[in-house]
């Protein structure tokens, strides 16, 4: 009950926060964002045609009129149509967000799980071989440019210069139209192609994310290992595995959960421009990048707003997670 009340209270408090975020985002987009006019004028425009286009795009309306229109769009989550392609922005998001999510999810899960595992290993063997090995691996992952990793992984796993196991680029096509295809055949088709296209991007993402995650998680766990209760537990003769997993990890979970939950909005909506560009994945990252460079404001507004809303939810979720992880925590009024 306390959690529910807290959640509702946080949701209400988040309204002015969202209002502020939208105002700042909109101001930035209007005054510093690209102007689509000069991108869509033909080769030999006249001053009159420039005025026509600006009027069609709504650029000539006063700032507050445009902002209130924007607020209406946020409330109804109807951002209209893309200025470039005319496609409904909700359709664009509905088409691309699941793809980006599907690509990001395995890497997100694995890099966090492996990160925690490696951090436990490194922290337990602090100063020893495994600690150094894991940290060297982490530093390498953090130091090498993401772009280089993506190119290297593509060459190693996908090209005829390397192992040639996976496609260079692409995404799952609708299954072939066989009238007698069974449900299992179609399910297998999707399963097979999903892993075919997602494995190399996932490996590249894990390689990079693992370094950051492991270093962070290790620092948190090492701090826990220095606490008195660990020494006490050891004095009681509790096994190392139990101490690490049942006590240390549990107590380290709050910063770990915070980091993981806060990164969720990126996994859900931000997409990954580099992966999408290099592996030909039709996700939201590429759409957002194109929208920013083309000045396609409806798409930019939708992505910025969705990310802001998801962030607010992530913050609330983090607070709820604290209570779940440690029931002693109470929510102040």
């Amino acid at each position: 009950m306390e959690t529910l009340q807290y959640t509702i209270r946080k949701l209400i408090y988040s309204i002015p926060l969202l209002f502020g975020v939208t105002l700042i985002a909109f101001t930035l987009m209007v005054y510093f964002g690209p102007d689509l006019t000069d991108s869509i004028l033909g080769k030999n425009p006249t001053a009159e045609q420039i005025a026509d286009v600006r009027s069609e795009l709504g650029y000539d309306a006063p700032f507050f009129v445009r902002y209130f229109m924007f607020l209406k769009e946020v409330v109804t989550f109807d951002f209209g149509s893309s200025m470039s392609s005319g496609e409904d922005v909700r359709s664009i998001l509905a088409r691309t967000v699941p793809v980006s999510f599907a690509v990001a999810l395995p890497a997100f899960i694995l890099s966090n799980l492996l990160g925690v595992g490696l951090a436990l290993l490194a922290a337990y063997h602090r100063g020893g071989f495994w600690d150094k090995f894991v940290m060297v691996f982490a530093v390498v992952g953090m130091s090498v440019s993401y772009l280089m990793i993506v190119i290297a992984f593509q060459i190693i796993f996908s090209t005829s210069y390397g192992l040639n196991w996976f496609p260079v680029q692409g995404w799952i096509d609708p299954p072939p139209d066989y009238p007698d295809a069974t449900f299992f055949e179609i399910a297998y088709y999707y399963w097979y192609n999903y892993w075919l296209y997602v494995t190399v991007p996932t490996l590249a993402s894990i390689f990079v994310a693992l370094g950051y995650n492991t270093r962070f998680f290790r620092a948190v766990i090492v701090e826990e290992l220095n606490r008195d209760y660990v020494r006490t537990a050891r004095a009681y003769g509790i096994g190392n595995g139990t101490i690490m997993l049942k006590h240390v990890l549990k107590n380290a979970l709050i910063p770990i959960a915070t980091r993981i939950i806060i990164s969720l909005p990126f996994v859900i909506i931000a997409g990954n421009l580099l992966l999408e560009k290099f592996f030909g994945i039709p996700g939201v990252g590429l759409v957002t990048y194109d929208a920013i460079t083309n000045g396609d404001l409806p798409v930019v507004k939708a992505v910025v707003t969705s990310t802001a809303i998801l962030y607010v939810f992530a913050l609330i979720l983090t607070d709820i997670a604290y209570k779940v992880i440690d029931p002693r925590i109470t929510y102040s009024k």
Binding site: Q154, T159, Q169
Partner: peptide, 19 residues
Amino acid sequence: YYFMQESMTRWNSLNKGNE
């Protein structure tokens, strides 16, 4: 018709033989 702005990806895909 594939839109491939990354020239290395385009080359790798072509050189692979079956893309």
